[in-house]
């Protein structure tokens, strides 16, 4: 029933990725549905971070990185020559492993994305800053100190600020690359709650090491192992009745 209104927003075909000569992703085929939460799980070094970092081409920054295959975003291959990377990244936002606020005020952190996309009116920026901070469940904690340097916030607050920063420019997709790996359990709970809220309006892809987290927040789960997609399906099915032996081993913790 739900599937009927969900269309694939990303269609990934035969995606392989390389750092220099080293192949880190091998022939990945997967469709990501809109307005859903897709969790990417797998052991360290399995290519899951590389996978999400290919979706907004942030890995272009990395020396000697290249991809083969196609990633269709709204039926347009994002690795085509005529694609505007700036526009792509505006639509496909990202939150990184370690909170990385700019060394500026809380306000400036969020306003930056707006300013570079030519929002000029101060009232409008003020309004979006407030709205984004509220969406990221940070507003109540910082509303009186918007001028304060973002680096003085706690790790968990910084990460929510980074989420607010990503939300401010109204993306369609939010990539979360192990967003909770560097923060405490309480902040983690807050961010998970947040993901649940955000899924109504955004498509979310989250990389996580934490199996319970994947089970709690996601609709779909993809299991990666040594650069290959081993299994992909509804989270319930993947966790309760994995089709592949290796998935089962990983989920039950029997993995070496």
């Amino acid at each position: 029933m739900v599937e009927n209104i969900q269309k694939p927003i990303f269609k990934i075909q035969n995606l392989s990725a390389f750092y220099g000569a080293k192949e880190v992703l091998r022939k990945i085929n997967i469709n990501i549905l809109s307005n859903s939460v897709t969790a990417i799980i797998g052991p360290s070094g399995c290519g899951k971070s590389t996978f999400v970092r290919s979706l907004n081409r942030i890995n272009d920054l990395i020396l000697n990185f290249r991809v083969q295959g196609k990633i269709f975003y709204h039926n347009k291959n994002i690795y085509d020559k005529d694609v505007d990377v700036v526009e792509l990244r505006r639509k496909v936002g990202m939150v990184f492993q370690k909170p990385n606020p700019f060394p500026k005020s809380i306000y400036e952190n969020i306003a930056y994305g707006l300013k570079i996309h030519n929002f000029i009116k101060k009232e409008m920026i003020d309004e979006i800053v407030e709205k984004s901070l509220k969406k990221a469940a940070l507003w109540d904690e910082v509303k009186d100190n918007l001028k304060q340097n973002a680096l003085s916030l706690s790790g968990g607050q910084q990460q929510r600020l980074c989420i607010a920063r990503a939300l401010a420019i109204e993306p369609e997709v939010i990539l979360l690359d192990e967003p909770c790996s560097a923060i405490d359990p309480i902040s983690t709970a807050k961010i998970e709650e947040l993901i649940y809220e955000l899924k109504k309006n955004y498509t979310i892809i989250i990389v996580t090491h934490n199996m319970q987290q994947a089970a709690r927040v996601s609709d779909y789960t993809a299991f990666f192992l040594s650069g290959e997609l081993i299994e992909f399906g509804k989270t319930e099915e993947v966790f309760k009745a994995p089709k592949d032996r290796r998935t089962e081993d990983y989920i039950t913790g029997r993995f070496g």
């Binding site: 920054l61 700036v86 990244r89 370690k98 700019f102 930056y112 994305g113 570079i116 980074c162 420019i169």
Partner: peptide, 21 residues
């Protein structure tokens, strides 16, 4: 490097990243 990533991830161009961050 994470500052550059943060800036590019919100859709900044190279010059905007250099100039503002």
């Amino acid at each position: 490097f994470s500052i550059r990533e943060a800036s590019y991830a919100v859709g900044a161009t190279k010059w905007q990243t250099v100039r503002h961050q």
